[in-house]
């Protein structure tokens, strides 16, 4: 049994290998796997942000269950002044209405919104559909299929809201991400997709409408959904920073100032330019009101489309 003794010794050593975390180390939770769209922005946000705060920070990816696992971890760290979450729109404003989660929109101290990109309704460039009107007409014979990056994601909600509020006949086919959905669009498996400018620019797509309250710069001939006779649907892919509840006002103030300075820094600006992320800063109070409003709107959409439980 010599080997058993050795193994026990080795296993005992394992106990000592965990890294000692310094008390003033800031943990930035990103609820997606490393290398994803949100992660990239978070990682370029992190250096300037920690510099502003004067602390060392670590980006930690806690992925899973539509970004709610990582978000729940932030919510559960009540009172911990050394953890924040870099959050996507879905985890804060959609998922709480979809399933039972250990958090809700009230579980956080809101710090700031960093970026936001309006979504477009688009079709493949190879299709002969050039306007929303034509899309609606052609959908009457046989309903179109619209893709999304998964059930309960923003692309899904935007299209579900469009279908409920217009004569468009279309059904939902979810994919595991924007990439596979684009592949399906290229192969004409689906015909419609709602997503951001990044996707629009990278693939052969034609925008038919924009889910915003005004036309977007650079796409001046793309009408807003309101102009097309639909209710003013506002769907954008945004990201923001939240901290757990129960941190001191002073700490929250520090975070807010650091976030503002980071978003306004040249370094972050030049990155956002490259990654086509639209900087859209909102301070703590505005951000909180914004999330609350989005949460309620999305909840309504989910109920109208019969998606809420």
């Amino acid at each position: 049994m010599k080997s058993l003794r050795y193994s026990l010794a080795a296993l005992a050593l394992i106990g000592t290998t965990h890294a000692a975390v310094a008390a003033d180390n800031l943990e930035i939770i990103v609820p997606f796997a490393a290398g994803g769209a949100t992660d990239i922005v978070a990682r370029s946000f992190e250096p300037t942000f920690s510099q502003q705060l004067g602390v060392t920070s670590v980006v930690r990816n806690v992925a899973g269950a539509s970004a709610t696992v990582g978000t729940a971890e932030v919510a559960n760290s009540e009172g911990n002044p050394n953890i924040i979450g870099y959050e996507p729109a879905g985890a804060l404003s959609i998922q709480p209405s979809l399933k039972k989660l250990p958090y809700g929109p009230d579980s956080f101290t809101y710090i700031c919104r960093t970026v936001s990109n309006p979504m477009f309704l688009m079709v493949s460039k190879s299709s002969d559909i050039t306007s929303f009107k034509q899309l609606v007409e052609e959908s009457q014979d046989q309903p179109f299929l619209y893709g999304s990056s998964g059930p309960g994601t923003l692309p899904h909600l935007a299209m579900a809201a469009t279908v409920v509020n217009s004569d468009l006949k279309a059904e939902h086919v979810p994919y595991s991400g924007s990439g596979p959905a684009m592949n399906a669009l290229a192969g004409n498996e689906i015909q419609i997709m709602a997503d951001t400018e990044t996707i629009l620019e990278n693939y052969d797509l034609r925008p038919l409408a924009v889910f915003a309250d005004h036309r977007v710069e650079g796409y001046d001939d793309v009408p807003t959904v309101e102009e097309l006779g639909l209710p003013a649907l506002d769907f954008a892919v945004w990201q923001g920073v939240v901290a757990p509840k129960g941190i001191s006002d002073e700490r929250a103030q520090q975070y807010a100032e650091a976030c503002k300075a980071t978003v306004e820094s040249d370094k972050f600006k030049s990155f956002a330019d490259k990654a086509k992320a639209g900087i859209a800063y909102l301070g703590p109070d505005d951000f909180k009101a914004f999330v609350q409003k989005r949460f309620e709107t999305n909840k309504q959409v989910l109920e109208d489309a019969g998606l809420a439980p």
Binding site: A33, G35, I40, G177, G179, N202, K274, A275, K276
Partner: peptide, 26 residues
């Protein structure tokens, strides 16, 4: 096509975007 085949290539694509290369049709 700018479509990552799996998690690994998705991470590579992320790294490319950081350096200002946007994979895609162009």
């Amino acid at each position: 096509l700018g479509i990552p085949g799996d998690v690994v290539t998705a991470m590579m694509m992320g790294a490319m975007v950081i350096h200002g290369i946007t994979p895609g049709v162009r």
